[in-house]
Protein backbone atom coordinates (compact mmCIF):
# COMPACT_ATOMS: atom_id res chain seq x y z
CA UNK A 1 0.00 0.00 0.00
CA UNK A 2 1.32 3.47 -0.82
CA UNK A 3 0.79 6.13 1.85
CA UNK A 4 -1.43 9.11 1.04
CA UNK A 5 0.88 11.32 3.07
CA UNK A 6 4.45 10.82 4.20
CA UNK A 7 7.00 12.87 6.10
CA UNK A 8 10.73 12.34 5.85
CA UNK A 9 13.02 13.52 8.67
CA UNK A 10 11.21 16.77 9.32
CA UNK A 11 12.41 19.29 11.88
CA UNK A 12 11.10 22.68 12.84
CA UNK A 13 12.99 25.38 14.72
CA UNK A 14 11.50 28.57 16.01
CA UNK A 15 14.63 30.58 16.63
CA UNK A 16 16.74 28.46 19.01
CA UNK A 17 13.78 26.37 20.11
CA UNK A 18 13.57 23.02 18.35
CA UNK A 19 9.85 22.28 18.21
CA UNK A 20 9.99 19.22 15.93
CA UNK A 21 13.10 17.16 16.25
CA UNK A 22 13.20 14.80 13.28
CA UNK A 23 10.00 12.99 12.49
CA UNK A 24 9.45 10.39 9.78
CA UNK A 25 6.02 8.90 9.29
CA UNK A 26 3.50 7.68 6.73
CA UNK A 27 -0.28 8.00 6.82
CA UNK A 28 -2.43 5.51 4.92
CA UNK A 29 -5.70 6.01 3.12
CA UNK A 30 -9.07 5.71 4.85
CA UNK A 31 -7.61 5.68 8.34
CA UNK A 32 -8.40 7.70 11.44
CA UNK A 33 -5.10 8.62 13.05
CA UNK A 34 -4.89 10.42 16.37
CA UNK A 35 -1.82 12.42 17.36
CA UNK A 36 -1.74 12.43 21.12
CA UNK A 37 0.49 14.37 23.44
CA UNK A 38 0.68 16.97 26.19
CA UNK A 39 0.38 20.64 25.53
CA UNK A 40 3.42 22.09 23.82
CA UNK A 41 4.63 18.74 22.54
CA UNK A 42 4.40 19.95 18.94
CA UNK A 43 1.16 18.31 17.75
CA UNK A 44 -0.20 21.39 16.03
CA UNK A 45 3.15 22.21 14.53
CA UNK A 46 3.44 18.71 13.07
CA UNK A 47 -0.09 18.91 11.68
CA UNK A 48 0.60 22.30 10.15
CA UNK A 49 3.74 21.00 8.49
CA UNK A 50 1.90 17.95 7.13
CA UNK A 51 -0.88 20.15 5.78
CA UNK A 52 1.45 22.62 4.08
CA UNK A 53 0.56 25.53 6.37
CA UNK A 54 4.05 25.74 7.82
CA UNK A 55 7.30 24.95 6.08
CA UNK A 56 9.58 22.56 7.99
CA UNK A 57 13.12 23.71 8.73
CA UNK A 58 14.45 20.53 7.16
CA UNK A 59 12.89 17.42 5.67
CA UNK A 60 10.21 16.81 3.06
CA UNK A 61 6.51 16.08 3.03
CA UNK A 62 4.95 14.08 0.21
CA UNK A 63 1.29 13.82 -0.78
CA UNK A 64 0.97 10.62 -2.80
CA UNK A 65 4.03 11.20 -4.99
CA UNK A 66 4.02 15.00 -4.95
CA UNK A 67 6.64 16.70 -2.79
CA UNK A 68 4.59 19.50 -1.27
CA UNK A 69 7.48 21.07 0.61
CA UNK A 70 8.96 21.93 -2.80
CA UNK A 71 5.87 23.66 -4.18
CA UNK A 72 5.65 27.37 -4.92
CA UNK A 73 3.16 29.47 -2.97
CA UNK A 74 0.60 29.37 -5.74
CA UNK A 75 1.01 25.64 -6.33
CA UNK A 76 0.69 25.07 -2.60
CA UNK A 77 -2.52 27.11 -2.46
CA UNK A 78 -3.94 25.10 -5.34
CA UNK A 79 -2.91 21.85 -3.70
CA UNK A 80 -4.57 22.83 -0.41
CA UNK A 81 -7.72 23.88 -2.17
CA UNK A 82 -8.01 20.65 -4.14
CA UNK A 83 -6.68 18.02 -1.77
CA UNK A 84 -7.18 18.79 1.90
CA UNK A 85 -9.79 19.91 4.38
CA UNK A 86 -9.12 21.54 7.72
CA UNK A 87 -11.12 21.61 10.96
CA UNK A 88 -10.02 24.08 13.61
CA UNK A 89 -10.51 24.10 17.37
CA UNK A 90 -12.38 27.41 17.21
CA UNK A 91 -14.44 26.52 14.10
CA UNK A 92 -13.36 29.59 12.08
CA UNK A 93 -16.66 30.24 10.38
CA UNK A 94 -17.12 33.55 8.60
CA UNK A 95 -19.56 35.54 10.69
CA UNK A 96 -21.18 37.39 7.81
CA UNK A 97 -22.06 34.23 5.89
CA UNK A 98 -24.84 31.73 6.60
CA UNK A 99 -24.09 28.12 7.45
CA UNK A 100 -24.74 27.09 3.86
CA UNK A 101 -22.51 29.83 2.46
CA UNK A 102 -19.82 28.90 4.96
CA UNK A 103 -19.93 25.29 3.84
CA UNK A 104 -19.63 26.27 0.20
CA UNK A 105 -16.94 28.88 0.69
CA UNK A 106 -14.12 26.56 -0.33
CA UNK A 107 -15.74 25.08 -3.41
CA UNK A 108 -14.40 26.24 -6.73
CA UNK A 109 -16.16 25.76 -10.04
CA UNK A 110 -13.73 23.07 -11.15
CA UNK A 111 -14.57 20.71 -8.29
CA UNK A 112 -17.18 18.00 -8.13
CA UNK A 113 -18.29 18.38 -4.53
CA UNK A 114 -20.04 15.71 -2.49
CA UNK A 115 -23.81 15.67 -2.45
CA UNK A 116 -24.66 18.64 -0.28
CA UNK A 117 -27.97 17.33 1.02
CA UNK A 118 -26.59 13.97 1.96
CA UNK A 119 -23.63 15.47 3.79
CA UNK A 120 -25.64 18.01 5.74
CA UNK A 121 -28.12 15.30 6.62
CA UNK A 122 -25.41 13.03 7.99
CA UNK A 123 -23.99 15.94 10.01
CA UNK A 124 -27.50 16.81 11.22
CA UNK A 125 -27.23 20.44 10.19
CA UNK A 126 -29.74 20.34 7.33
CA UNK A 127 -32.17 22.41 9.37
CA UNK A 128 -29.66 25.12 10.22
CA UNK A 129 -28.43 26.12 6.81
CA UNK A 130 -29.75 29.67 6.69
CA UNK A 131 -28.52 30.57 10.17
CA UNK A 132 -25.47 32.69 10.86
CA UNK A 133 -22.63 31.35 13.05
CA UNK A 134 -23.65 33.60 15.94
CA UNK A 135 -27.01 31.83 15.97
CA UNK A 136 -25.46 28.35 16.30
CA UNK A 137 -24.12 26.40 19.28
CA UNK A 138 -20.46 25.40 19.38
CA UNK A 139 -21.27 21.83 18.38
CA UNK A 140 -23.42 22.98 15.50
CA UNK A 141 -20.71 25.40 14.36
CA UNK A 142 -18.11 22.65 14.45
CA UNK A 143 -20.35 20.37 12.37
CA UNK A 144 -20.75 23.16 9.81
CA UNK A 145 -16.97 23.53 9.81
CA UNK A 146 -16.60 19.78 9.26
CA UNK A 147 -19.03 19.97 6.34
CA UNK A 148 -16.89 22.77 4.88
CA UNK A 149 -13.77 20.60 5.18
CA UNK A 150 -15.37 17.50 3.69
CA UNK A 151 -17.69 18.90 1.00
CA UNK A 152 -14.89 19.40 -1.51
CA UNK A 153 -14.54 15.63 -1.82
CA UNK A 154 -10.92 15.73 -0.76
CA UNK A 155 -9.36 12.63 0.68
CA UNK A 156 -7.44 14.12 3.56
CA UNK A 157 -8.91 15.94 6.56
CA UNK A 158 -6.83 17.59 9.27
CA UNK A 159 -8.46 18.23 12.65
CA UNK A 160 -6.55 20.25 15.23
CA UNK A 161 -8.22 19.86 18.63
CA UNK A 162 -11.54 19.73 16.81
CA UNK A 163 -13.34 18.90 20.05
CA UNK A 164 -11.21 21.11 22.25
CA UNK A 165 -13.94 23.68 22.79
CA UNK A 166 -16.85 21.26 23.04
CA UNK A 167 -18.57 19.53 25.93
CA UNK A 168 -18.82 15.78 26.30
CA UNK A 169 -21.98 15.25 24.31
CA UNK A 170 -20.92 17.39 21.40
CA UNK A 171 -17.42 15.97 21.40
CA UNK A 172 -18.75 12.46 21.15
CA UNK A 173 -21.02 13.46 18.34
CA UNK A 174 -18.22 15.11 16.38
CA UNK A 175 -15.93 12.11 16.77
CA UNK A 176 -18.71 9.75 15.80
CA UNK A 177 -19.56 11.82 12.72
CA UNK A 178 -15.94 11.97 11.63
CA UNK A 179 -15.79 8.19 11.81
CA UNK A 180 -18.93 7.81 9.78
CA UNK A 181 -17.66 10.31 7.17
CA UNK A 182 -14.49 8.28 6.92
CA UNK A 183 -16.54 5.17 6.24
CA UNK A 184 -19.09 6.80 3.94
CA UNK A 185 -16.78 8.94 1.80
CA UNK A 186 -13.48 7.14 2.27
CA UNK A 187 -11.58 10.06 3.72
CA UNK A 188 -8.39 9.93 5.72
CA UNK A 189 -8.44 11.77 9.03
CA UNK A 190 -5.58 13.16 11.10
CA UNK A 191 -6.74 14.30 14.51
CA UNK A 192 -4.66 15.97 17.24
CA UNK A 193 -5.88 15.87 20.81
CA UNK A 194 -4.73 15.34 24.33
CA UNK A 195 -7.86 13.33 25.03
CA UNK A 196 -6.94 9.67 25.33
CA UNK A 197 -10.55 8.56 24.99
CA UNK A 198 -10.68 9.91 21.47
CA UNK A 199 -7.46 8.08 20.76
CA UNK A 200 -9.16 4.82 21.65
CA UNK A 201 -11.63 5.25 18.80
CA UNK A 202 -8.82 5.62 16.24
CA UNK A 203 -7.14 3.06 13.97
CA UNK A 204 -3.74 4.38 14.90
CA UNK A 205 -2.36 6.34 17.84
CA UNK A 206 0.79 8.43 17.52
CA UNK A 207 2.07 9.83 20.80
CA UNK A 208 4.35 12.87 20.87
CA UNK A 209 6.53 14.40 23.49
CA UNK A 210 8.98 17.27 23.19
CA UNK A 211 8.83 17.34 19.44
CA UNK A 212 9.39 13.65 18.95
CA UNK A 213 7.21 10.60 18.39
CA UNK A 214 7.53 8.40 21.43
CA UNK A 215 5.09 5.72 20.32
CA UNK A 216 3.22 4.87 17.14
CA UNK A 217 0.85 1.92 17.27
CA UNK A 218 -2.08 0.37 15.47
CA UNK A 219 -5.24 0.17 17.58
CA UNK A 220 -6.40 -3.37 17.04
CA UNK A 221 -9.76 -2.88 18.78
CA UNK A 222 -11.06 0.66 18.42
CA UNK A 223 -14.03 1.53 20.60
CA UNK A 224 -17.10 3.31 19.29
CA UNK A 225 -17.43 7.03 19.96
CA UNK A 226 -20.43 6.46 22.16
CA UNK A 227 -18.45 4.24 24.47
CA UNK A 228 -15.94 6.95 25.31
CA UNK A 229 -15.78 7.62 28.99
CA UNK A 230 -15.37 11.32 29.66
CA UNK A 231 -13.57 12.46 32.73
Amino acid sequence: MIPILSAEKITKDYGKEKVIKGITLAIYQETFTVILGPSGSGKSTLLNILSGMVKPTTGTVKYEDKIITALSQTELADWKRNNIGYVFQNYMLLSNLTAEENIKVGISSKMTPLAFDRLTHILEIDGLLDKFPAQLSGGQQQRVAIARAVIKGTHLIFCDEATGALDEENSKKVVELLHSLKNTFGVTILFTTHNEQIAHTANRIITMKDGMIISDEENESPISANDMIWR
Binding site: T74, A77, I84, M92, G106, R148
Partner: peptide, 15 residues
Protein backbone atom coordinates in the same frame (compact mmCIF):
# COMPACT_ATOMS: atom_id res chain seq x y z
CA UNK B 1 -7.29 38.76 9.71
CA UNK B 2 -9.08 35.56 10.68
CA UNK B 3 -11.16 35.53 7.56
CA UNK B 4 -8.11 36.06 5.39
CA UNK B 5 -6.24 33.37 7.31
CA UNK B 6 -9.07 30.94 6.83
CA UNK B 7 -9.32 31.63 3.14
CA UNK B 8 -5.63 31.15 2.71
CA UNK B 9 -5.72 27.99 4.85
CA UNK B 10 -8.34 26.44 2.64
CA UNK B 11 -6.36 27.25 -0.43
CA UNK B 12 -7.17 30.75 -1.66
CA UNK B 13 -4.32 32.01 -3.80
CA UNK B 14 -2.51 35.19 -2.87
CA UNK B 15 -3.78 36.83 -6.03
Amino acid sequence: TQEIGLKKAIGARKG
